[in-house]
Design a binder for these strands. Structure first.
Lengths: 260, 260
DNA sequence: CGTTTTTTTGAGAGCCATCAAGCATTGTGG
DNA sequence: CCACAATGCTTGATGGCTCTCAAAAAAACG
């Protein structure tokens, strides 16, 4: 893992309460966990090792041999990335509260990407080896996992298409659209806007553009009256325009309440 | 599905034998099926609806409401693709014998991509609704599914990074590298080469380049002594060079015999 | 308030798309 | 077997999107 700032959260904000039991976790209402019963939750809790708190910029995971844990992001933002031979960084995906990462350690035995905190984060660390056994005992959990992986795959398909075919401003718009949708499901969008910790270089590394061009593309979105980012906050000026301009296909959720 | 050419294969090549039972399928030795026992296989067979034979260029799947089936590719090549608002086509992935597609119908209820045959193909059609029940009865099958999804995800990560960061010739090299590796696991590589049905426009739609530039990029790979495509056959001239040039990270398979 | 980091803006160069023409290959029908 | 059409591949020229380099402006930080 990383240097600095260890386990116990400094703040006493409600979501920051250390070592909340899975059964009582506020995330239980969202995403893949929604369909599980109490019994399954107690077992997931048994898998839980501990919660970890990390500061902005902390490298949560680095590529290399796995340590036998996987994680859920309890609060804050992070991103998965890999480094290309020439040293360039590609951000594969942004991680929002409730997202799971590292499931592959149970199957492939390696971290093949890095995970970095974009904001202060709290993680839940879970023991990977017993995952198989748990899935055997709780088929609903397994199906929830598969569901999550399939949704991820659909999103990855969209990202691939955008990087393959879209110009700069559209790439940026698509990214904004995807994040906004996911944040909406998490109930973090208010007044057509939300907290938004991405810097120019995060946009750049996620969209395959240079920081310079990200700047120009964002200026274009602002000039077109589509979206605006200032003071760490994103405002969607025209949702319809953004949807059309980005070419994003909204995800119809099958088993999800619209928001919290 | 598509027009023309129905069910029974015309040829009597061994791999073309119609309605082989899953237990006796030659694909049983590869990919996700490897770890399953006879009992599980009999149940998978019960899921099987029938085999379908389709000609080159057939549109196997088109985006829209799902019909309750998912598929495995029994023989031949195909590709998954989506169409962007501007009409451009993005190839998301090439499908090789043994690959599964359409698992999402059991969860999302829709085909959100198209599947097209690159060669004459034989498909196995399976009933999606009973998949959940089957996974409950055979945890090994579920874990195999998850394993497959996770491997897919890793490959999708690599593709995303290449589209985000690599120049034309590297994108092509990466695609060749990935396909070669997968074909090797399927035992279809001999003498540093293999059958290769991709046309220029498939390269173009997969890598986000124009057909013109694909042509130039392939010429560069040939000139550099890396790889050569002619008469529907790919020859890897220098595997080490190809690996280095493409930046591809070979996949260490955990539970796979090297080839058939 | 000075230092550092980030963002904006400008100029030139490069990769690649588009358009277009020539060449090779394939298939068809006479 | 050959003429012909159709398709796909190659190669050239031009233009546009985006990169790199660079410097100024703005914001964040201590």
């Amino acid at each position: 893992m990383d240097q600095s700032s260890d386990d116990a959260p400094r703040s006493s904000a409600p979501w920051c309460r250390p070592n909340v039991a899975c059964q009582e976790c506020s995330l239980r209402q969202v995403r893949l966990f929604q369909q599980l019963d109490d019994d399954a939750f107690r077992s997931v809790n048994a898998l839980r090792d501990r919660q970890l708190s990390r500061p902005v910029g902390a490298r949560l995971i680095q590529p290399g041999p796995a340590d036998g844990f996987f994680y859920t992001l309890f609060s804050g933002w992070a991103f998965r990335s890999i480094r290309l031979p020439d040293g360039a960084r590609q951000i594969l995906e942004f991680l929002l509260p409730g997202d799971v990462f590292g499931l592959q350690v149970a199957f492939l035995g390696d971290w093949d990407y890095a995970v970095t905190a974009l904001t202060p984060v709290v993680l839940c660390r879970l023991r990977a080896p017993s995952l198989g056994e748990l899935c055997t005992r709780f088929p609903a959990l397994t199906l929830a996992l598969i569901h999550t992986l399939i949704e991820d795959k659909r999103r990855a398909d969209g990202r691939l298409a955008v990087l393959g075919r879209a110009l700069g401003p559209q790439r940026i718009a698509f990214l904004l659209m995807e994040l906004t949708e996911r944040l909406e499901f998490a109930g973090e969008v208010r007044d057509n806007g939300c907290e938004f910790p991405l810097r120019r270089r995060h946009f750049a590394d996620a969209t395959g553009l240079s920081g310079t061009h990200v700047s120009r593309s964002l200026a274009e979105l602002r000039a077109k009256g589509i979206a605006h980012i200032a003071d760490g906050r994103l405002t969607i000026l025209d949702r319809t325009l953004l949807t059309r301009f980005s070419g994003y296909t909204p995800l119809a959720r099958s088993v999800e309440s619209p928001s919290l």
